[in-house]
Amino acid sequence: MSRLTWFLIPLILFLLLTVFLYNGLFSDPSARESSLIENEFPAFSLPDLADEAITHTNDIFDGQMTFVNVWGVWCVTCAIELPYLTELSQKGYRFVGLYYDQDLDPDFGSKTINRVRAEVIETTRRFGNPFAFNIFDVYRDTSLDLGVTGAPETFLVDPAGVIRLHHLGDINERVWTGKFLPVIEAIQREYPVLSQLSTEHQLTGLKQ
C-alpha cells in the first residue's frame, strides 16, 4: 500500500461511522419493534390484585377499548404518570393495571401479598387511581409473554383483544396526542359504537 492509503484510514473509518450515526438519527432509541402489535393479547388467567377469588381472562377486552398499564409501586416513573392516567380515566378511557412486584415472588420473595395491597392502596391514594381493576401477574408470566422490559409500559388493546400499540415509558400529554390519539381514532373508526361510548363517558366525566 502506498503511504497515502495508510493515512486515509482514519478518514475511511470516520465516514463508516457517520453512516451508522445517520441511520441512528431516524430510529427512536427508546422504541423497539414490538412483535406483538396486531397480534392477540397473549392468553392469561390471573387473579385480581385486591381479591384473589376473582380471576381475569382475555374476556376483559370484550367489546371495549382497554389500556393495559404495566406498573408497580416500586417504579418511580409510574408514580409520575399516575395523575395523568387518572385524568384520562375520568374522561372515560378504561385502564387496567397489570401489576407485578419485584420483591413479591410466592416462592422466594420477602413481601406478603397483604403488604403489597396496602402499598398499592397507599400509592393510588397519593397519586390517583386510574385503574378499573388490577390484574396480579403472580409469576410474571404474562409480563414475559408481553416482552415487558420494565415499568411503566402500556398496551392499547382493541375490542377484539388485539394489541394495537405498545408504549415504553410514561404517558404524558405529548405521547398521548402524538402516539395514542391517532391509534385510538383508528380503532373508533373500526368500531363506531365505541366513539359514542367514549363521548358519553367524556360528558359524564365533565359533569362530575
Binding site: 497515502l4 495508510w6 493515512f7 486515509l8 478518514l11
Partner: peptide, 9 residues
C-alpha cells in the same frame, strides 16, 4: 482528516 491524509503522508 482528508487534509491530514494529503499532507501528513
Amino acid at each position: 482528516l482528508l487534509l491530514y491524509a494529503l499532507r501528513a503522508s
